[in-house]
Design a protein around this nucleic acid. Structure first.
Lengths: 236, 236
DNA sequence: TTATACTATACAACTAGACAAATATTACAC
DNA sequence: GTGTAATATTTGTCTAGTTGTATAGTATAA
């Protein structure tokens, strides 16, 4: 899907550098070799970009000396509009949740490992959607050990809150043991739920919460709509 | 009557070659033409197999260069006191950094705010690439207050390490004050550096590090290759 | 008929390396 | 200091190889 040739994006980058005054008229640009290294590309690709700029009269090369800035571009590409993102706290206190399903089944391998269960143990699963101002921002799945928390599903359907449901099941307090994050492309199903186009960037988060004694009580996976969510971590 | 398509058996054959260690991560596979000749098929059939493997993240083609065996996703811990070099070595990979450019300029608004500077103050800027086993995993920009750390650029070009450069400039220790994360689509330039296709999901991270007295010393922005990086947050 | 799997060919885009030509820098004689 | 030769640096050019893409054709099974 990358229609723009590499050399063109390099030419654009250098052109905007000149336009922004990073290089002035008469200045020598970095050598072709340096530019190639900076952009992680072959020298010939840089030459292709420079020759394009030379044709436009922006730079003029001198063999043995270097490439020099000839003039300012009359018009240059301006940066794309910066989008404003809703800032969501990473602590999990997101206003508005919608229950998609509450089920009970056998734990799969990754769930068993995360919750320190033996294969074959059953788990309660909470699938849901996180909302902010009515807009979907996250699609999550919380997995709980059924033996430890037999009544968690009832508590969840009442409160819709993981924290309060756990409290009602005797887990006074819990802490986040681990969190892993990565960026992915939205699957069709995820795109549907999060009102995104297929392939849009999403934040994929996997985490485990444990009670005060260190025993895991929840294994959560969340897919955030990348364009609508910024996770903020404050260490204090 | 084997129903399995030819390209699939080729993909399986190559996959097992990789699994058996006949090709190691980072190795270049035989060229498409060679593989086509070896299997007695057309190059397009080989390409079909390779594109399937690329989708699974097993291999990573580079136009003009060849097809290379991809590395497993790298765990990248973030938290109060994480140091890139240590954390990557701990994951069994060889860490590296590549300096793209070292410059000095006036701070923009967001930088001034993050570093608690007054508008017009100058900053030193370190653009670079983070590597694990030679593969690019992150494209970063570190901004330092010039007045507080006048010699940081020399220290950086010597050590390539933010931690050691700061130490040499009198900052014995530092901690992460804040981190913000979101998912985005790779721009052409970012895709170029990180060896991704344009529009591939990337993790965008913005963070501030402060010294022991709480004064900001570094404002860092990083773009991680989503398919090669998992951020791990350890709460300690 | 229609879709599929594969073949065949051609060209574009990029990498890789080598060497030539022009220029800049340095060392040294005077 | 000045001029000159030697050396290093930088752009220009060439050849070759590799992946990406587009178009057209063929055999086969549903």
């Amino acid at each position: 899907m990358s229609k723009t040739p590499v050399w063109k994006s390099i030419a654009l980058s250098l052109t905007s550098d000149i336009a922004e005054g990073r290089y002035n008229t008469g200045d020598q640009l970095p050598t072709e070799a340096q530019l190639a290294a900076q952009h992680g590309v072959n020298r010939h690709t840089v030459r292709r970009a420079l020759s394009d700029m030379a044709e436009q009269g922006l730079v003029h090369p001198r063999r043995g000396a270097g490439v020099f800035v000839a003039a300012r571009p009359t018009d240059y590409p301006i940066g794309k509009r910066v989008r404003y993102h809703k800032s969501i706290s990473a602590s999990g206190k997101i206003p508005g949740k919608k229950i998609l399903s509450l089920t009970t089944r056998v734990a799969d391998d990754s769930e068993a490992e995360a919750l320190q269960l033996t294969p074959g143990d059953t788990v309660h699963v909470y699938d849901g959607l996180s909302l902010a101002d009515g807009q979907p921002i996250g699609l999550f799945q919380s997995v709980f050990p059924a033996e430890r928390l037999p009544d968690i599903l009832d508590a969840l359907s009442d409160t819709q809150s993981v924290t309060r449901a756990l409290q009602r099941c005797g887990v006074e307090d819990y802490t986040r043991v681990s969190t892993r994050l990565t960026a992915r492309a939205a699957t069709p199903t995820q795109a549907l739920h999060l009102h995104l186009t297929e392939g849009a960037p999403v934040l994929f988060s996997v985490g485990v919460n444990a009670d005060t004694t260190g025993i895991p009580v929840e294994y959560g996976r969340t897919v955030f709509a990348g364009e609508r969510v910024t996770l903020t971590m404050n260490e204090d």
